[in-house]
Design a protein around this nucleic acid. Structure first.
Lengths: 343, 343
DNA sequence: TTTGACTCCGAAAGCGTTTTCGTCAAAAAT
DNA sequence: ATTTTTGACGAAAACGCTTTCGGAGTCAAA
């Protein structure tokens, strides 16, 4: 049963434990024939290595940590499950584990990092919710903890990260509005502590410029990344004498707040004013009218994050060689339409 | 730095490693004075035990697994993050870890269990999304894997579980409708493979009976646990000659589908027909009108689940002694009102 | 025949804890 | 004064694996 160890396999095959171990770890000084033998008896006995013994002996924890993005007692990441599913599936494939960590504040998180750097319990870390100027990059580098970030930062050129191409996404979104005939396109952006806020603004701007549309500063409203934030921002937009005909929102949540604001002003989203969110939240399809948005393949992202970190830990790659940009795709539902001719 | 081990502490204090170890583990054959000394040098040197060595030697993985409820390629648990945060905080307090597992199908999950029972990598398991007749209870018991379930099942009397008091919740919800003046109260329930579906129906029924309201079978509609499911169920309800004035929905998602259906029939949720959801999804506040619902303290639930399992693993309690019911609370937003007098 | 290279494997020393058992002095009981 | 008990600690064997090193055997080249 569970009492199958290296020893039992060795005894059964009249080999030494070390040979069996090296056979399993695919050392090149073991003949193919014995490797085959060993592998056969492994399945026969249902052998499962004791990972703690292995990790103790090898010094490799074979275990990745994911820092749950928890801030201000608020946690609103509908993707968390899918992201972690992606990570976990990638890791179980190679026998590694994924353990979760929570940091309730920035200080708490730094403290966590320090502890981790002492107790070498984790091979590496995956962090998310990166800020525009995220100190964690430097801290982790100084502590020599291998990590990959979900999202970029100003000072991430020598680190490993995976991010959505925010600029392209909002470039595409804005272009899409333009192709629908819109000229007056506003953007509700997020707080500029987040790097993606800046990038998304950039995408919006570039699309307008490329089409020769002048950028009006009052068409750019910054909002908290929340329902209320979106509502307030749209309220301001609706106070303008010259209203936009389309609004690109930094997130679905914000877009839903914006829709609320429109309803309060007796405007129908997708009619007088088109709008799009970003994130591809499923619940966007549940409201009336269903919210157009942009999606990214979250699960693949999780898988990639894990694989990148493994490569980093194994020393196969340098951090700066592990940087990846994924693209988001437009998901049309009902709030992106051509402008009303009457306007 | 990180090279502080038991040995370094022992050397510094001229003690043996074993004494230091036992001092740290609070053995009673160590004098208080040396315990104090040891603890002081521990903080001085910033000692962090090597958990792999400890786990290997002690035979206790000190590590709990959480099976991510993944089914049919669908994962829609907005609570996942909060739940896991609760678990993780409870565990880090005692130096244990939380690792996540994903099972993409039932067979996959059973296979996972079997592997786990051989390789003693995990001290125990937390499972969720329990079915009315959930085979996992028996399987895990047979494999002698300690576990606690988030949610009950038919055959869970000898197991450890934590669940919301679904019956009370829907009893309360229905009573609430009644106190608002409603008499014609329908219920959209979930598929009866889920235990909570049955329990929620029960709560609804009992409240009606207690108030002497006759239960009309056409007022009970079963729906898939999805937006579309809710929409379809409400469509059926609206075909009735004698319409209900209130509808209690098995989940917020379903309730939102029901709202969609009402809009399609030119009815305003909370006006002609009141309705309530269940889960306390934040997004329920983002729609128009905001959805009334019921909430539970998810993070506390996560914490409890972890603590229960630890007690189970430590052998301090029997599974049947670890069963806990938590209550859900009404969260009034805008869709629960008194019936219209005209009707 | 010697030398060298190459292939394959075993011996053994770790990895850093825990835990059992034995020891020895001092305190308590006889 | 002798025995028994108690308190406090050290020695040492695990736990199950990895990894380095060396050695035996084979084969071809010198």
């Amino acid at each position: 049963m569970s009492n199958s160890s290296l020893k039992s396999i060795a005894k059964k095959l009249s080999l030494s434990e070390s040979t069996v171990s090296r056979a399993l770890n695919d050392y090149k000084d073991i003949s193919l024939s014995t490797k085959k033998l060993v592998n056969e008896t492994v399945v026969e006995l249902g052998y499962q290595p004791n990972i703690f013994a292995r990790r103790l002996a090898s010094g490799n924890p074979e275990c990745l940590g994911f820092v749950i993005p928890w801030r201000d007692g608020q946690l609103n990441d509908p993707f968390l499950g899918e992201l972690m599913t992606g990570m976990s599936t990638a890791l179980t494939k190679i026998g590694w584990d994924l353990t979760v960590l929570v940091a309730k504040s920035f200080e708490n998180e730094v403290e966590l990092f320090k502890k981790l750097s002492m107790s070498k319990n984790l091979s590496g870390l995956i962090i998310s919710r990166t800020l525009r100027n995220d100190e964690r990059f430097k801290i982790l580098k100084d502590l020599k903890i291998p990590f990959v970030a979900h999202g970029r930062s100003i000072n991430c050129s020598t680190s490993s990260w995976l991010d959505v191409d925010n600029e392209s996404a909002f470039f595409d979104m804005t272009k899409h509005f333009i192709s629908l005939g819109h000229r007056k396109i506003a953007h509700i952006c997020g707080p500029n502590v987040y790097n993606f806020s800046i990038q998304r603004i950039e995408g919006w701007k570039k699309a307008l410029m490329k089409s020769g549309i002048q950028i009006k500063s009052e068409f750019l409203q910054v909002a908290d990344l929340s329902f209320d934030g979106g509502k307030i921002a749209m309220d301001k937009l609706l106070k303008l004498k010259d209203l936009p005909t389309a609004v690109s929102c930094v997130s679905d949540t914000v877009a839903m707040g914006a829709m609320q604001s429109m309803r309060n002003h007796n405007l129908s989203p997708g009619k007088e004013i088109s709008l799009m969110g970003y994130d591809g939240l499923e619940l966007g399809a549940w409201i009336d009218p269903p919210l157009s948005t942009m999606t990214q393949p979250i699960q693949t992202v999780g898988k990639n994050l894990a694989e990148m970190l493994v490569n980093l830990v194994d020393g196969k790659k340098k951090p700066s060689d592990l940087q990846k940009l994924v693209r988001a795709n437009i998901l049309r539902r009902a709030t992106d339409n051509s402008p009303m001719t009457t306007s």
